[in-house]
Simulated assay, not measured.
Amino acid sequence: MIHPFLFLDWLADLVNLHVGEHVLYAWLAMALLIVLAFAAGRNLKMVPQGLQNLMEVVVGAILDLMDQIMGPKGRGYLPLIATLALFILTCNLLGLVPSCFPATANVNTNLAMAATVVVLSHIVGFKEHGLHYLKHFVGPVWWLAPIMIPIEVIGHIARLVSLTLRLFGNMFGKEVVLMIFLTLVPFLLPVPMMLLGLLIAFIQTFVFTLLAMIYLAGALEEQH
């Protein structure tokens, strides 16, 4: 634990609930998103206003990016991509709130999301192409298969590791640096670090989401 006081840990101790802090704050992020979705969708209008307008802009931006990266077939995976993007962003932003901890600063949260993306990319590949999806692993000519298959397997494992550790490293590092500055100089100086943390929250959300799209787009693509 980096923060000296985490209010959800304190509440969990009161009710004798023994779960990790990353689990508690992942639940908090999910609860916030559920409330946000309910508030935005409870009174839908043809001409959106307020929160509905904001959410339509956010989802529309994600959908436009998906069209560019994944093509028309990718639209069916909007629920997954949008959920990942909003969940990661919410977790990242919670790290800027006093007494809150970003669930993405724990490797277990990120590993679960990365495994979902990588495993789903292979499921999508087999769903779209059947056994022809295996051509992605054997290379352009059959006699290169003994060399290409180990390389491709290592490459797909590297996807899992890189998705996990990139987000974890950036968010955990931000937490450490921010706590050091708050401890040494509690006034004024941490403000630029908070702004930097805000920038990191959005950038890391974008990077993870973009890579998830690229991996799914690769599975949708026909191998020649």
Score class of each variant (00 low, 15 high):
Pro72Ser: 12
Thr116Trp: 06
Leu111Ala: 15
Leu65Arg: 05
Leu131Cys: 02
Asp9Ile: 02
Leu178Val: 01
Met194Gly: 08
Glu175Pro: 02
Asn108Asp: 10
Arg166Phe: 10
His224Ala: 15
Ile154Trp: 09
Pro48Asn: 03
Leu65His: 08
Ile149Pro: 08
Thr205Pro: 02
Gly173Thr: 08
Tyr215Cys: 00
Pro140Leu: 10
Leu120Gln: 03
Pro192Met: 11
Leu8Asn: 01
Phe206Gln: 06
Leu28Ala: 11
Leu80Ser: 09
Lys73Cys: 02
Ile88Trp: 01
Ala82Arg: 08
Ala105His: 06
Trp143Glu: 15
Glu21Gln: 13
Ala82Gly: 05
Asn170Lys: 05
Leu54Thr: 13
Thr116Tyr: 10
Gly71Gln: 03
Asn16Gln: 12
Ile180Tyr: 10
Val35Arg: 00
Leu28Gln: 01
Pro150Ile: 04
Leu11Asn: 07
Leu28Met: 14
Leu54Tyr: 06
Ala82Leu: 06
Gln49Val: 13
Gln52Ser: 09
Leu199Tyr: 08
Leu80Pro: 01
Pro186His: 13
Leu131Val: 07
Ala82Trp: 07
Leu28Lys: 08
Asn53Gln: 14
Glu152Arg: 11
Asp13Ala: 10
Leu6Tyr: 13
Thr183Glu: 13
Pro140Arg: 11
Asn92Leu: 04
Thr183Asp: 12
Gly74Val: 05
Phe187Thr: 14
Ile2Met: 12
Trp143Arg: 10
Val185Ala: 13
Val97Arg: 12
Ile69Ala: 03
Leu189His: 04
Cys91Val: 07
Val19Pro: 04
Asp13His: 07
Val185Met: 15
Leu14Cys: 07
Gly41Glu: 13
Val138Gly: 04
Met1Trp: 01
Thr209Ile: 01
Gln49Trp: 04
Tyr215Ile: 12
His129Trp: 09
Pro186Trp: 10
Thr104Ser: 14
Tyr215Ser: 07
Leu163Ile: 04
Lys73Trp: 13
Asn92Thr: 08
Ile2Tyr: 11
Phe137Ser: 02
Met46Thr: 08
Ser99Phe: 14
Ser121Cys: 04
Met213Thr: 05
Ile157Asn: 03
Pro146Asp: 10
Ala201Ser: 15
Gly60Ser: 07
Ala115Glu: 05
Val153Met: 07
Ala219Trp: 00
Phe172Ile: 11
Ala85Ser: 15
Phe87Pro: 01
Arg159Cys: 12
Asn53Gly: 06
Gly169Lys: 00
Ile149Gly: 06
Gly71Val: 03
Lys45Trp: 00
Gly41Arg: 13
Ile149Ser: 01
Ala31Arg: 05
Ile203Lys: 09
Glu21His: 13
Ala158Thr: 08
Gly50Asn: 09
Ile34Leu: 15
Val15Cys: 05
Tyr77Val: 02
Pro190Val: 09
